[in-house]
């Protein structure tokens, strides 16, 4: 009994390790396709459209509302200490450093990542990847590479939109509705937020999240069992794994970037 349980544990551990290995090999193969992608920017363009443009609406609306909520909550807390002028700092710092990259990554994982997984999984199930292979076209380079770089490019831009709209949402609530001083809102924000320390680090974060979310989505699709049930399981796994990876990585990156 015990031996059997141990053996099962070992087997699933080995299977997980093999999965990690396959995922890294796939990543390397997808990145290696970059030289073939560069002379054909239209393929990349189509994927920026799929991942980026189609996610703008949900990112914009979410960013605006998250910023407004931050403005409201921040005002109530800060006002108790007579520090309502720091509202801009609070809203902008939390958006640029954390919420912008993280929430954008979670939304993209749900909106575009799951679609990528399903698309690739279905292409596998309907033998389209095999067909490419038989037409002497490398499916990783033709299908995965443009999606990977499309995701990596779209994510920081989406995160920047999220943060910018969030700051405007916070400004609208704080200055427009609750009467915080307009000048103090912006000047305190500018004084306390550092371009390199805050904005650039936020962009680096979202770039990392872009890589991870797209990578997980592509791997789950490519590695899916080519059946209807297999693809649906892969889609779920794609979103769950991407969300966990984003949150875990966010902790590590925050510790690296903002620790004194």
């Amino acid at each position: 009994m015990v031996m059997e349980a141990l053996a099962r544990l070992g087997r699933s551990g080995l299977a997980a390790l093999a999965g990690v290995g396959r995922a890294h090999m796939l990543l390397a193969a997808a990145i290696a396709g970059l030289p073939e992608l560069l002379p054909r920017p239209r393929l990349l363009l189509a994927q920026i459209y799929n991942i980026g443009v189609l996610s703008v609406l949900i990112i914009a609306v979410s960013g605006l509302f998250v910023g407004m909520v931050l403005g409201l909550q921040g005002y109530y807390v800060l006002n108790q200490f007579g520090a309502a002028e720091s509202l801009g700092v609070m809203v902008a710092a939390s958006l640029v450093r954390e919420l912008g990259p993280v929430v954008t990554a979670l939304l993209v994982a749900g909106r575009a990542g799951s679609a990528l997984t399903a698309e690739i999984g279905l292409m596998k199930a309907t033998e389209q990847l095999s067909a490419l292979e038989m037409m002497a076209v490398n499916p990783v380079r033709r299908v995965l590479t443009p999606r990977f770089f499309g995701g990596c490019l779209a994510m920081p831009l989406l995160a920047a939109m999220f943060s910018a709209l969030g700051v405007l949402g916070g400004w609208f609530v704080g200055v427009g509705l609750l009467g915080v001083d307009d000048g103090a809102f912006w000047s305190q924000m500018q004084a306390k937020l550092d371009f390199r320390g805050d904005v650039v680090n936020g962009v680096i974060k979202s770039l990392v999240f872009g890589v991870v979310v797209t990578w997980i989505a592509l791997f789950q699709g490519y590695d899916a069992t080519p059946t209807a049930a297999g693809v649906s399981r892969a889609t779920t796994r794609s979103v769950v794994h991407a969300a966990l990876a984003v949150l875990g990585l966010d902790f590590i990156l925050t510790a690296l970037m903002f620790g004194d």
Partner: peptide, 14 residues
Amino acid sequence: GFVALFFLAMRVSN
């Protein structure tokens, strides 16, 4: 996207 980045750079941070 770049307008948003520019906004974050110039208006939000300094």
